[in-house]
Simulated scan of single mutants.
Amino acid sequence: MKRRQILMLAVLTWANPALAAGSEPLPASIQSVLEHTLVDYIRPQYAAFEQAAVALETTVETLCDAPSEATLAAARGAFRDVAGRWAQVEWLRIGPVMSENRLERIYFFPDRKGTGRKQVQAAIAGKDEGVTDAAALAANSVAMQGLGALEYILFGTGSEALATATASHRCGYARAAASNLATMAGDLTGGWGADTSLSRIFVAPDAQNPLFRSDREALNLLLGTLIHGLEAIRDTRLGAFLDSSDKHRDRPKLAPLWRADMTMASLSANLKGLEALFNASTLETAAVDPNGRLGNTIRFEFTQAIRTAESLDAPLADMLADPQTRDKLVYLGYAIRIIIDRLDQDFAQAAGLSTGFSFGDGD
């Protein structure tokens, strides 16, 4: 196990001493929950991400070989697909994604100072040959690779030239970035394969296990993934562009994936991915729920938040300028807060854990 990976796991598991030291016994073994998480969530999500990344690599190669309006549109569509797939699994901060800076290399965000944009612009303007080689690009700045770089290449200023034969360097950069992304996606699926030590220890908490020394620590990590992810969606995704108290401080150009017009689609995918984690993991079986309502209550709150996000499909700047749609964006933050409270208070208590589980530091 990489030192950084183990450290991150330690942070997730023991960031709240009261939670880690909860005195109430867990209601049942967590092993079944971990097996479901691995088989029904982690592997399918990463497999879908890899499939989308390989499709993007193929469509970008076609674009570069035969530039046209149609091939550019196809590459942009493939980008939106892979960005949406990543959004559904990006909050899982465990395993190979935490090694070799893959997390940041796949999507460097937030980038409040525009570091990535400036570096990508400079590489394109200067026709930097280093960014047209996938291996060289992988060793470059994390902000110059991954989804952030690809979004600017495919949708940013001057991207229309990709439909012609005049942007060969820019397309070569896109080709290298897409290839690098597909390689990383393959590393993630491979890292969670059935024959890996990570998969074996993930489902078997033990005193000598570097991931989970007990069922309680495993439950802490899963619950922490959900709560941390929801807090990050609210604070560093929605909060990147929306100031809930002052509309004059909204910042639409700091929103995730705004150039690809994917801000709200990515937020919806974020929420759907965490909902899928809650459902696929069968996490609710780890809680004592005499009335059998807790799981459905949490699912209802997820549905409300996702429905709100999906209803907001106009251009972001227009939504922020319209008082009604802006109010819905503010409500989305509130709806996410409700899910956090359900997990942090109701579920934690039902699972025999201390309440007050918080990862407010963001991602």
Rank of each mutant, 00 (worst) to 15 (best):
A47E: 12
E50H: 14
A73G: 00
V33L: 08
V33W: 00
Q45G: 10
V97L: 15
L72S: 06
L38I: 06
I30K: 09
A70Y: 05
R43G: 02
P44W: 01
A78K: 01
P25H: 10
I106G: 01
D81M: 15
L92A: 06
I30C: 10
A48G: 08
T59H: 08
Y41F: 14
D81G: 14
P96K: 02
L92V: 12
A78P: 05
L26Q: 09
V33H: 03
A28L: 07
L26Y: 12
A73Y: 08
I42P: 03
S32G: 12
I106E: 00
V89G: 00
V89T: 07
L56C: 00
L56N: 05
V82Q: 00
P27E: 11
W86A: 03
T37W: 03
D81Y: 08
A55K: 07
I94R: 09
A55H: 10
G84C: 06
A75N: 04
E24N: 13
F49P: 03
L72G: 02
D40N: 11
S68G: 07
W91P: 07
R102I: 05
L92Y: 04
R76K: 06
Q31F: 12
A28R: 13
S23I: 15
V60C: 03
A55Y: 02
A28F: 11
V89I: 11
L72D: 00
D65H: 10
A47S: 15
A83E: 05
L72N: 06
I30A: 09
A78H: 00
A74L: 05
M98K: 11
L92M: 10
E69H: 08
S99F: 12
H36V: 11
P96C: 00
R85W: 03
F108L: 09
